[in-house]
């Protein structure tokens, strides 16, 4: 069990957790305004793909990240328009968006790069690794915490920023109010749909970053459907973390660790099938400790007397 003390395991945890964490933060924002965003998976996929596209055309990693953010942002506008403006069933819209993301990326993969399945180019440069001065010289800890892509550090900063925003600022307070009781918020002249849009767009940007980390940070390539359920795991992380940024970070860490562990264990005697199952099984077990709102409450909400 020596590998459990190995710094690279924890370093890779940090790397693996970033996409989940960023997407889960986006999911938390949506949840806070009352939108259960099942479309995270698709948003991250779009981000991952467009990061590669941006990189391919500009040759600049940061422009690529920016492009990823922009594309996911555009995509999240569709989610917002459908669910806020047209009041379609949020879950159905989320599922539909996942289809659209998968379709668009596979099509564009073919149309732009003329390949099927995956795109890899050895000349492509991934996100830089930042060595943190001083920190990197601390034994073990330096190996874990230093030398990651900027997005890894950005995600930690974003957790703190979002925590502050939600619970310490006026705008954050109003965002919480819009989710808690939209009718009441509206009666006070708070522009609930505008706030919902804000949260959805913010979620789109976060998912764009998540995607960029996935395709330019962890690896430097794009494969069809490369999110492989991470968006849904992020959704569970959102629920487990009670939509609190700090809580979301804690639950994401668990899943990131499992991701890293599952890759790590592949070197051992276990068949890869079982090691790959690990994150999903742990996620299901984690859900045991989080009680869903329950159909009673949900049904009550959707069948309120005021029509």
């Amino acid at each position: 069990m020596d590998f459990l003390l190995d710094a690279t395991l924890y370093a890779s945890t940090l790397r693996m957790v970033t996409p989940i964490l960023l997407a889960a933060l986006g999911g938390a924002l949506c949840a806070r305004v009352g939108l259960f965003n099942v479309g995270l998976e698709g948003l991250v996929l779009i981000g991952a793909f467009s990061a590669i596209v941006g990189n391919h055309f500009t040759g600049n990693v940061f422009a690529a990240v920016l492009f990823a953010v922009l594309c996911s942002l555009l995509f999240s506008i569709i989610f917002g328009y459908m669910s806020i403006q047209l009041k379609a069933n949020v879950i159905v819209v989320g599922i539909a968006l996942n289809f659209l993301a998968l379709g668009l990326t596979t099509f564009s993969l073919r149309a732009i790069f003329d390949v099927k399945g995956a795109y890899y180019n050895k000349d492509m440069v991934g996100l830089p690794k930042w060595d943190i001065p001083l920190l990197k010289d601390i034994p073990w800890l330096g190996d874990v915490l230093s030398g990651h892509s900027p997005l890894v550090y950005l995600s930690i900063v974003l957790v703190i920023a979002l925590q502050f925003f939600l619970f310490k600022t006026v705008s954050g307070f109003r965002l919480l109010a819009s989710g808690e009781n939209p009718t009441a918020a509206r009666s006070l002249g708070i522009k609930v749909s505008r706030i919902q849009y804000g949260a959805v767009l913010m979620c789109g940007m976060l998912c764009g970053l998540a995607g960029a980390q996935l395709s330019l940070g962890n690896v430097t390539m794009f494969t069809e459907g490369m999110t492989s359920g991470r968006g849904f795991i992020a959704l569970v992380a959102t629920m487990l973390g009670q939509s609190n940024p700090i809580g979301v970070m804690a639950s994401s860490m668990l899943f990131g660790f499992m991701d890293a562990l599952s890759i790590r264990l592949q070197g051992f005697a276990l068949p890869t099938h079982f090691t790959m199952m690990l994150p999903y099984i742990v996620t299901i077990f984690a859900m045991l400790f989080f009680k869903d709102k329950g159909y009673m409450q949900e049904a009550r909400k959707s069948n309120e007397s005021s029509r």
């Binding site: 006026v170 307070f173 109010a177 808690e180 009781n181 708070i190």
Partner: peptide, 18 residues
């Protein structure tokens, strides 16, 4: 009532003009 149950009384009163 148009109140936010999980918020405090003060938060409920000042909301909109915090």
């Amino acid at each position: 009532f148009m109140l936010f149950p999980t918020f405090t009384i003060a938060e409920n009163i000042v909301i909109g003009r915090e």
